[in-house]
Write a protein that binds this DNA or RNA. Structure first.
Lengths: 329, 329
DNA sequence: CCTGACTTTGCAACCGGTTGCAAGTATCGC
DNA sequence: GCGATACTTGCAACCGGTTGCAAAGTCAGG
């Protein structure tokens, strides 16, 4: 089996402490014993057991990565960025899929059982209440894509959803649309309601512009398509702000299916700027969310909390901007 | 902080062993002490520390989930299925992103350091040599989407790529195409060369049919588009088998960009049948790979190995079939 | 060569669990 | 009521590391 501290110690002719110290950052060992130990370790193909180490140091370098978005392609990019970013720092993501978890308590329990050092909740649909549970369990937690609050309960990294709503409304008005629509994610998602809120703020200032709105059942292609088909069965607006790219693409599919064209008959603006939006048979005009920076900041935040768990919760916001492609006239 | 075995033991007025036993499956405790212990545990909000448990039992219930495919949307589905399936069995995925890892040794080391119970390598582009390294390190390993071999080095679950190549060729011939092309993933990927192999097997039997082939730089949209643009700059074939859906979509984008139409001018058949292929503005004809069954079988395989690490490696293959949509004439 | 300051080392206790073993307690048949 | 048998239980050692503490070693200066 794998060799242990003791094996190495015996082979190198030193104490177990000496071995332990050569493998701990900043411990005091003479270079002579260090060399002996390293040689013995190499011979035996030894590597320290992180679990045992975690047991004594209560630092496991395990980070819970919790999400319920396994059907929105942008989250593949998110997972890619998270895993790389954590790995660079020597941290390890323990992935938790909350999709069909009825009881969040269960995940919290399990993350505590593995004594993770921290938790990253990556979701724009989970309520703030959820991440609070982690905090109450004594776990450092960062809510990525969480709802902005000036004085949040838990650390939050993301975008100003209300502002994105405003931005979308302005983009549509600037293009001269006078009958616009909002197509959101589920109305239980804070992101969906916040984006609508901002959208309305601008439209209130333009009383002559008509507005319709509808919440889709989820942030998914099918939900977007279904919602847009319903819109089309009445008098649809001239252009829609779909609160997510995958929703937008679903909506576009519905528009095409109805024999209409994007952007000639109906304009679409999305949100996220996921890779697929750039595919040039999609070429979606969308509000770009800088997910690479968001992920980076989230990891930095959680790392900072490891050293200083007590630091007050704050919200970090990143600016978004419209990327014009081919789905607005 | 979190309460421990000792705290519970004291509160319940029993020994630490008694507490340990009430939390271990099938250990002998009287119902009287069990009740006392459970009550005390509830009061103290106790839960066993898996790391400590793992240390004595050398079972961590941690499974390394290793992949290098973080840019192919089908892998979001794969991760979704894996995480759920592992969670159902009380196992926890430790996610490893190999994308920019120059040295696989490094990941292997780290998985050993966390004493994972097993490893699932989910990739069709990693060479068999890679998963062998895990096996040699004494870790039970399953290579999902790995290369088929009648007597493989490590357990393999996937599809018969050669047969898929044959299937694609036959589908194209049946549609009357007489000048066909193969557009593969990188020629370092076993899946790409195997699929080509099968494709050729059929075409050899039809000497009158012309064939061209080209390997894309990776399994990605951009690589597919670039490769197809190159094809189009010469005399393209009438229809292509693109060895992956995301490659197919890239290729379709190139075809459209060149002013040609799918399927009128050029036909496309993909492989995977990822969710996006079903989007009805894509509507890709493709060879369906039953990823849900593949994932399920992979997890079952790795679970079986936990109990019996010595079992001989075998390959499990799942049948594929063509799903006809709108990209062949 | 001696002293004092600093560095290196080993001992032993601890992190939070599991488990073989032997002693203690119930249960049963007679 | 007794002995045999089957359950329960606690002790103590162990899993593979870390770390405070004190003893031992090193070195420079006088």
């Amino acid at each position: 089996m794998a060799s242990t501290l003791k094996d190495v110690a015996e082979r190198a002719g030193v104490s177990r402490s000496a071995v332990s110290r050569t493998f701990t950052e900043g411990a005091s060992v003479s270079s002579k014993t260090r060399d002996k130990v390293l040689a013995a370790a190499k011979d035996l193909d030894y590597q320290p057991n992180f679990l045992a180490r975690g047991l004594s140091t209560s630092r496991t370098k395990l980070i819970g990565l919790v999400s319920n978005n396994f059907h929105n392609p942008v989250f593949l990019e998110v997972f890619d960025l998270f895993t790389r970013s954590l790995q660079e720092r020597g941290l390890r993501p323990l992935l938790v899929n909350l999709s069909d978890e009825t009881d969040p308590e269960h995940s919290i329990q399990m993350l505590r059982q593995y004594s993770v050092d921290g938790v990253i909740v990556a979701s724009s649909t989970l309520p703030p209440r959820f991440s609070r549970l982690f905090r109450d369990a004594g776990l450092p937690v960062v809510h990525t894509f969480g709802r902005y609050a000036p004085k949040p309960d838990v650390h939050t990294v993301g975008i100003d959803n209300v502002d994105c709503g405003r931005m979308a409304a302005q983009a549509l008005l600037a293009k001269g649309y006078r009958h616009v629509g909002y197509l959101g994610g589920p109305d239980t998602a804070t992101s969906a309601v916040d984006r609508f809120e901002g959208f309305c703020q601008i439209l209130k200032q333009h009383p002559k512009v008509d507005m319709v709105h509808r919440y889709a059942a989820s942030y998914s292609f099918d939900a977007g398509r279904t919602a847009m088909l319903q819109e089309l069965s009445n008098t649809p607006a001239e252009a829609y702000f779909c609160a997510d790219d995958v929703l937008s693409i679903g909506a576009m599919s519905a528009v095409q299916q109805s024999g209409r064209k994007v952007p000639e008959d109906i304009g679409i603006i999305g949100l996220n700027d996921m890779e697929i939006a750039r595919w040039n048979n999609i070429s979606l005009t969308t509000i770009r969310q800088p997910i690479d920076e968001i992920v980076k900041a989230s990891v930095e935040q959680v790392v900072a909390m490891l050293d200083d768990p007590g630091r007050p919760a704050k919200a970090t916001l990143f600016p978004c901007h419209v990327v014009y492609r081919s789905t607005l006239r």
